[in-house]
């Protein structure tokens, strides 16, 4: 028992959504934040200057609309990743969130932010190798990608799990990889930047759940 009881399963062909207590809470959080991000206007950022007064930065509207759209995509992908019951789908959602993260930041026309997002993008491309590779190896070993099925199979998947965890760490930019990502957070525009952080944290928790289940 990991996720605190299953409420129900919705099968759409081979795409299965599971509503357990854990996934429902994660889904609700992701959707709530997506709505909040849609509603919130970005803050005006005060930048400390080396000389003289602080500078108040305004963000133009066209830059803002792009970023809001990417933030909403990011939120919806996170919500989907909370519910999906397929390892490969989850990996796809992870990479989608990675692309959306780059999109949120890349509209900021500042050099250090763009540099950081480029470095993060390289990391996230590199991380797709262990992520998809691990899911392909799991498929080869067990013949299925469904988490519900893998839960009953009881095979030793330690190596694949470690690979999958590594891929997740690179894709969400946690501990060993976060250096570039923390630099990304210095871009102005709070609600959108917050979405990057939220999605990565929720996905980490979900990955831990998956790795414990299979």
């Amino acid at each position: 028992m990991i996720d605190g009881g299953i409420f129900g399963i919705v099968p759409f062909g081979d795409i299965i959504f599971k509503y357990s207590m854990f996934s429902t809470i994660g889904f609700v959080i992701a959707i709530t934040f997506t709505i909040l991000v849609y509603l919130t206007k970005p803050e005006k950022q005060l930048e400390a200057q080396k000389f003289g007064e602080d500078k108040l930065i305004d963000i133009p509207l066209h830059e803002l609309k792009n970023r809001r759209y990417m933030a909403i995509v990011c939120g919806i992908a996170t919500a989907g990743a909370m519910l999906t019951q397929d390892i490969f789908d989850f990996a796809l959602f992870l990479t989608l969130v990675g692309i959306a993260n780059i999109g949120i930041v890349s509209a900021v026309k500042r050099e250090h932010v763009l540099n950081a997002s480029f470095q993060y993008g390289l990391t996230s491309i590199i991380a797709t190798l262990p992520l998809f590779g691990a899911s392909a190896l799991i498929l080869a070993k067990t013949g299925t990608l469904s988490i519900l099925e893998l839960h009953h199979l009881n095979k030793n998947l330690l190596f694949e799990k470690i690979l999958y965890g590594l891929g997740m760490a690179g894709e969400t930019g946690v501990a060993p990889y976060y250096a570039a990502k923390a630099e990304m957070f210095r871009a102005p525009g709070s609600p959108y930047i917050l979405m990057i952080h939220l999605s990565s944290l929720l996905l980490i928790v979900r990955t831990v759940e998956i790795l414990l289940t299979i």
């Binding site: 990675g98 780059i102 999109g103 890349s106 763009l114 480029f118 993008g121 491309i125 797709t128």
Partner: peptide, 14 residues
């Protein structure tokens, strides 16, 4: 598709 999208996005950033 995902990998192509990622490479395109990062190239755009560059």
């Amino acid at each position: 598709v995902v990998s192509m999208a990622e490479i395109l996005a990062i190239a755009e950033v560059l």
